[in-house]
C-alpha cells in the first residue's frame, strides 16, 4: 500500500507539474501542429496518387530497382573516378563501356514507358 500510495503521489505530482508548465500558447501551438498534421495525413490517406505509388512500392522488382538506383548513386559519389577529359575521343571511350550502355538502355526504356503513361 505504501509503495502504491507513493506511486499515486508521484503520478499526481507529474500531472500537476505538467499542468503548471503548460501555457495557453504551448497548448495552442501543439493543437495547431496536430491539426495541420491531421489534415496532411487525411490528404495523403485519400490521395489516389499516393495509393498507386504505395501499390508500386509493394512490387519486389520495383523496390529492387530503386534500391539498386540508390546504391549506384551512392557508389558513383564515393568512387574516385578520374575527371572526364572531354573531346570526341573521351566520349567514344565512355560510350564503348558496356556498363554505360546498359545504363543508357535502362534510362531510355524508363522514359519511353513514362511517355506512354
Amino acid at each position: 500500500m505504501g509503495q502504491l500510495g507513493n506511486m499515486n503521489s508521484e503520478v499526481e505530482r507529474l500531472f500537476e507539474s505538467a499542468g503548471d508548465a503548460l501555457s495557453d500558447d504551448i497548448i495552442a501551438r501543439l493543437a495547431e501542429t496536430s491539426s495541420e498534421l491531421l489534415c496532411i495525413a487525411d490528404r495523403l490517406a485519400r490521395s489516389e496518387g499516393l495509393t498507386r505509388l504505395l501499390d508500386l512500392l509493394e512490387r519486389e522488382h520495383i523496390v529492387n530497382s530503386l534500391v539498386e538506383l540508390g546504391e549506384a548513386a551512392a557508389a558513383a559519389k564515393a568512387s574516385h573516378a578520374p575527371e572526364a577529359k572531354g573531346g570526341i575521343g573521351g566520349m567514344v571511350k565512355t560510350m564503348s563501356d558496356p556498363d554505360v550502355q546498359d545504363a543508357l538502355v535502362f534510362f531510355a526504356t524508363m522514359f519511353k514507358e513514362f511517355k506512354k503513361g
Binding site: L22, D24, I27, A28, S35, L38, C39
Partner: peptide, 23 residues
C-alpha cells in the same frame, strides 16, 4: 477546470480540421 480551458484553447486552433470535415 483548467483542462477544459485548454481544450477550448486547442479547439480554437483545431477548428480548421473541423471545417475540413475531420473532427
Amino acid at each position: 477546470t483548467a483542462g477544459i480551458h485548454w481544450f477550448k484553447t486547442a479547439y480554437n486552433k483545431m477548428y480548421w480540421a473541423s471545417a475540413r470535415g475531420l473532427l
